[in-house]
Amino acid sequence: MGARGAKPKPTALKVLHGDRSDRINHEEPLPPEGEVTPPEELSDDARAVWNRLAPSLIAVGVLTPWDTDAFVIVCESLARYKQATKLVNGSALLVQGPTGFVKNPALTVQREAETTFAQYGARFGLTPSDRTQLKVDVASGRSGAGAERLLS
């Protein structure tokens, strides 16, 4: 299997980042406008993440009805990371295993959740490197609604 390049940046982020017009797919299908709501199955901790992050992502057009499932992964992974961190902070880095001391299993959960969050969070501009390149209209906080966002 050959090496893979970086994942393509979502068009909404290309527009927000100020990418050249010829690098923007002006014929990309656009999700329908509509309310973006958290699904019922979200855990309480993930719902708190959703409530904290979703409003601003919706406002800049990065989180749409089509993106709900991917954003659930972001929210659940961050919630899991926080839960694992509490477990690690409340115990030791090494714990007694059947044959002696072993790495605290919560560290593995913490690292896996961190990796998932970083991968999916980057798709929404949530990592520091993605955020440094975001360009939004400070006055409105939006990149434009509907198809007009692609014409910038």
Rank of each mutant, 00 (worst) to 15 (best):
83 Q>A: 14
60 V>Y: 02
91 S>A: 12
104 N>A: 07
118 A>F: 08
34 G>V: 12
38 P>D: 03
58 I>L: 10
41 E>R: 15
82 K>G: 01
64 T>W: 06
132 T>P: 00
60 V>W: 05
132 T>H: 12
46 A>M: 12
52 R>T: 07
95 V>H: 07
90 G>L: 04
72 V>K: 15
136 V>P: 10
8 P>Y: 00
114 E>Y: 08
50 W>A: 05
89 N>F: 04
74 V>T: 06
87 L>H: 09
135 K>W: 01
93 L>F: 10
21 S>M: 05
114 E>D: 08
67 D>N: 09
45 D>F: 10
6 A>P: 06
138 V>K: 15
58 I>Y: 11
1 M>P: 08
150 L>I: 05
28 E>C: 08
124 F>G: 04
19 D>S: 09
35 E>M: 09
95 V>T: 11
95 V>F: 04
147 A>H: 15
85 T>C: 05
54 A>Y: 10
4 R>M: 08
7 K>E: 03
73 I>A: 09
149 R>P: 00
46 A>N: 12
119 Q>N: 12
66 W>Y: 10
152 S>A: 09
56 S>H: 14
11 T>G: 07
76 E>T: 13
13 L>Q: 12
33 E>V: 06
83 Q>H: 11
125 G>Y: 01
129 S>T: 11
20 R>C: 00
82 K>P: 00
20 R>T: 02
61 G>K: 09
114 E>F: 06
52 R>P: 01
129 S>W: 08
98 P>C: 01
92 A>T: 13
116 T>P: 01
107 L>H: 09
41 E>T: 12
21 S>W: 00
109 V>H: 05
40 E>R: 15
101 F>C: 10
66 W>R: 15
6 A>T: 06
79 A>H: 09
64 T>H: 13
85 T>P: 00
34 G>D: 14
148 E>S: 12
23 R>K: 11
75 C>V: 01
95 V>A: 05
143 S>I: 12
56 S>F: 10
6 A>W: 02
133 Q>N: 13
108 T>C: 13
93 L>S: 13
1 M>Y: 02
10 P>L: 01
148 E>M: 08
25 N>L: 07
134 L>P: 00
91 S>D: 13
31 P>C: 11
1 M>V: 03
78 L>H: 09
70 A>C: 09
7 K>V: 03
74 V>C: 07
120 Y>V: 02
55 P>F: 00
68 T>W: 10
39 P>R: 14
150 L>D: 03
16 L>N: 03
105 P>C: 05
45 D>T: 13
32 P>I: 01
105 P>S: 07
3 A>L: 09
106 A>K: 02
72 V>S: 07
50 W>P: 01
46 A>E: 12
23 R>C: 01
113 A>G: 08
145 A>N: 11
128 P>W: 12
70 A>H: 10
79 A>G: 13
88 V>W: 02
150 L>Y: 12
47 R>S: 03
71 F>P: 03
70 A>R: 15
100 G>M: 05
96 Q>G: 06
70 A>K: 13
3 A>H: 09
106 A>M: 04
81 Y>E: 09
